[in-house]
Design a protein around this nucleic acid. Structure first.
Lengths: 198, 198
DNA sequence: CTACCTTGACTGAATTTTCAGTTCGGTGCA
DNA sequence: TGCACCGAACTGAAAATTCAGTCAAGGTAG
């Protein structure tokens, strides 16, 4: 955990979040990690290697990230639980911002680099599943396929909202508001809260 | 229209769609457009200028693209109209693929290049408005703010689905299916059409 | 009409910058 | 002894950016 290699990977995540995959300079990474350039090549052979392993690192971390939480989870208010988990992704904390940015970069890079697709698809799948489970708990009457579809929609929406937020097309509050609306739309806004008609 | 500058912009769109903003080499662009590198600098001062103006070009083109259509638009089936317009963005034709890819790249780049943000926000705004109008027609009983919010959600969802599709995490049919589901969720799935279940 | 000038589009061949990747002598430590 | 590591100079190639100058159209004065 505290080994140098992992430090470099963490630093790479930070640099990618700050400058983008395209803006990643090996020398800047070395500086950020507080190591020499040589060490980077010692551990990861070349730039592509850095990228590949960093992206793997990011998606693993994202897996753990969602897998870890679930202790509180009041069984009587599954919907609030769901809402909380989803809104977690739209927050202006360094950690979330960093993760979202890096994740977005990873997604965008995968469009042109098939190597990355497998990791990406796996991580996406894990996330969608997690949300589908929460949906099933929040809406026990729905069918499994319906939950799966809703989960895919909600997660894709979050990705869409995230980039808009990060690219300055959408204020964060508004993004959160929209996401809440989507949850209402998906769950038919039954449950306690009233909201307008439909 | 047939002037050299426009040719370069078209070529830039193609190159961006093929290699990404990251992979855009000025010399490759020159080759693609069949002009000298120097001419590119003559028209667009620097690489950043190429990107800025290409984004403008793409968004203008997208404006026209949606603005043009509207002749048929059966007033009695505004919803089908809406559905058609939205699904237009999820198609495997060279043109749509090129536009979506380039659009996604520019959106992703804007996260790190504030110069691009203004154009991007303007184009996004125009698109959202267009969809909000269609929603208003399809659901005359809803309020304007509700339509605006739904339009933002649907367009953001399309962007999210697009990247997933282009990055190989989601088959196109499935993306289209999910989008249809979102429209149902937003419009409460009233109206004639039955669709296979869910 | 025509010799001269201007101007904008355009080119090819440099020049300059930027990076990834290498090399190597050297340090500390298990 | 050998592994993990430093550091800084260096190479080489790929890009970006610049520059001096060509070419054709259009104007204009003599």
């Amino acid at each position: 955990m505290s080994d140098r290699r992992t430090e470099i990977l963490k630093a790479a995540t930070r640099v990618i979040a700050r400058r983008g995959v395209r803006g990643l300079r090996v020398s800047e990474l070395a500086a950020e990690a507080g190591v020499s350039t040589s060490l980077i090549y010692y551990h990861f052979t070349d730039r592509a290697g850095i990228l590949r392993q960093t992206l793997e690192f990011i998606s693993d971390r994202a897996d753990r990230y969602t897998a870890e939480r679930s202790p509180g989870t009041y069984p009587d208010d599954a919907r609030a639980d769901l809402e909380q988990v989803l809104l977690l992704e739209l927050q202006d904390t360094p950690e979330v911002r960093e993760n979202s940015t890096a994740w977005g970069e990873l997604r965008a890079s995968a469009v042109f680099e098939p190597d990355l697709r497998e990791d990406l698809a796996r991580a996406t799948h894990t996330w969608v599943h997690e949300i589908a489970d929460l949906l099933a708990r929040a809406d026990p009457l729905g069918t499994a396929p319906a939950h799966a579809a809703a989960a895919e929609r909600l997660t894709a929406l979050i990705e869409g909202l995230s980039v808009r937020w990060l690219s300055g097309s959408l204020p964060l509050d508004h993004a959160r508001h929209l996401l809440e609306g989507a949850i209402d739309a998906e769950l038919g806004s039954r449950r306690v809260s009233d909201h307008g008609r439909s």
